[in-house]
Amino acid sequence: MSTDVLFDFAESDLTREGRERVAELGRELSSEYTDPLIAIVGHADRIGPPRPNLELSRKRAEAVRAALANEGISRDVMIAEGRGQSEPLVFCRGQEAV
């Protein structure tokens, strides 16, 4: 899923569309898998200091985990981690996301 859909810039709360997409994913996972193990990885771009970006990425992963839990997926089968700016999904030139 595109992070642009899930989160606004520098935010860890899911957007309305993000909540809908994660809820849809939760329903699909529940109907297709009986014993899933789900890894949720949060990301941030390289704009800003590394430590706050790492925290942002962790909060994003936890937001997705919480939304999936709201769809009935057990928190016990989900691992949420943040990668900060070490694995950005958006290319940034200077201080601007491209």
Rank of each mutant, 00 (worst) to 15 (best):
S12E: 00
V64C: 10
N70G: 15
G42E: 09
A67P: 13
D13C: 04
L68Q: 09
L56M: 02
R65P: 07
A61V: 02
R46G: 08
R58Q: 03
R65L: 13
A10S: 13
L29S: 03
A61T: 02
T34M: 07
D13P: 07
E20F: 11
V77Q: 08
I47K: 09
A39T: 12
Q85D: 15
L29K: 03
E24P: 05
G84V: 08
A44T: 08
A39Y: 14
S31D: 01
S86L: 10
R46V: 12
L25K: 10
N70A: 14
K59L: 02
I38T: 09
G72S: 01
N53Q: 03
D35N: 12
S74K: 04
E28P: 01
R27D: 05
A69T: 12
Y33S: 03
R60F: 02
S74F: 06
L14K: 00
R16C: 08
V22Q: 05
A61I: 04
R21A: 14
E11Y: 04
E17C: 13
E62S: 10
G82N: 04
E20C: 07
R27I: 02
R75H: 14
S31V: 00
I40L: 09
G42Y: 10
G26D: 06
I47N: 08
R65Q: 13
Y33T: 03
T34Q: 11
E24I: 06
